[in-house]
């Protein structure tokens, strides 16, 4: 294992902001993994630290395949992480909305450019990502449909779900999107948490990365075989929104099976404790996402359900 400095930003009153990478093996740039790009992505940082440990042990055991190299970048935004900010501490800009970056541009454009110049030539790219709405996900792989997406390789993670997303305009400046445009096969992996550590889902995701590496001939390792992934277009997920606002009391967890009409959550009056609304499932399926904040606005999507029909489509596409 070699530790390298990929980028450094100097400041007059703070230590430099450094982006460090951990390199394993020599040869073709095969896999790059990026962790926290926002200051609250603690789980994403933790996942990278676990992965570094795993790869270090494999390297010591001589289980890295010759001619392949792997780079792990646990954190690309120490300044926000160390000050409790999600975005860049001075101007609140998001590094993950600045790709491919610009080395003569503004600060976060320069950070994105510094990072991207190092990682754009890898064959595979994995980002441990977090979502713009607060909530818990079933661990899954997410791929943006750019025309360059590679769904077959995504199945090698062995995670239960692969979600295909049609990019919105604001997605076009993310790392995942730009990796694909530069011909890296890019995948975003979502675990259950962001701001706090959930070891169980972190281990699940690390196991999936190990499988992916083994199935792509990067390491020799025998682990659990994982799932046969269902490929679900994001548009097929059933969105369940609140009609009322108040205290949010969830009655289900992600991965629970629900039927139409099943009570998913209650919205409680914040003063008198009465139930303002029972949020009910709009169809039969599996809870894929649930809101995680204790309070909620009205008109907000608080659950996403994978409907049964999506599994049927997924199976037929598997046969085809």
């Amino acid at each position: 294992m070699r530790e390298i400095n990929l980028f450094e930003l100097k400041a007059i009153y703070r230590d430099s902001m450094r982006i460090r990478g951990y390199c394993f093996g020599e040869g073709e740039k095969t896999l790059c993994v990026v962790g926290a790009m926002r200051g609250n992505e603690v789980q994403q940082l933790y996942c990278c630290s676990l992965l570094v440990q795993c790869l270090k042990e494999l390297e010591e055991q001589g289980k890295l395949v010759k001619g392949k190299s792997v780079l792990i970048i646990p954190c690309a935004n120490t300044y926000s992480m160390n000050t409790g900010k999600r975005f860049w501490p001075t101007d609140n800009s998001d590094i993950n909305r600045m790709f491919p970056g610009y080395d003569k541009g503004e600060t976060t454009q320069r950070i994105a450019a510094g990072l991207f110049n190092t990682i754009k030539d890898y064959e595979y790219g994995i980002q441990f990502a977090s979502f713009y709405m607060p909530g818990r996900f079933t661990p899954h792989v997410r791929i943006m449909k750019t025309g360059y997406e590679n769904v077959e390789d995504a199945k090698k993670f062995g995670l239960p779900y692969i979600i295909l997303r049609d990019p919105a305009p604001y997605d076009t400046t993310t790392l995942n999107y730009n990796w694909q445009i530069w011909e890296t096969k890019a995948y975003s992996l979502y675990t259950q948490e962001t701001g706090r550590i959930d070891k169980k889902s972190a281990v699940k995701v690390i196991d999936s990365v190990m499988r992916f590496m083994e199935r792509n001939g990067i390491i020799s390792h025998s682990g659990k075989s994982g799932h046969v992934s269902d490929v679900i277009p994001e548009g097929e997920l059933l969105a369940v929104a609140t009609a009322q606002s108040g205290i949010f009391e969830s009655c289900v967890e992600v991965e629970n099976q629900v039927k139409e009409g099943h009570v998913l959550a209650r919205i409680i009056h914040p003063y008198n404790g009465s139930v303002l609304e029972e949020v009910k499932a709009t169809g039969e399926g599996i809870v894929f996402f649930r809101h995680s904040d204790p309070m909620v606005y009205s008109g907000t999507v608080v659950f996403k359900i994978i409907p049964r029909s999506a599994f049927r489509h997924s199976k037929s596409s598997r046969v085809n």
């Binding site: 606002s245 003063y271 309070m295 606005y297 009205s298 008109g299």
Partner: peptide
């Protein structure tokens, strides 16, 4: 007009 969690509307 949408409800905020505690006794307020936006």
């Amino acid at each position: 007009s949408l409800g905020l969690p505690v006794d307020e509307k936006i």
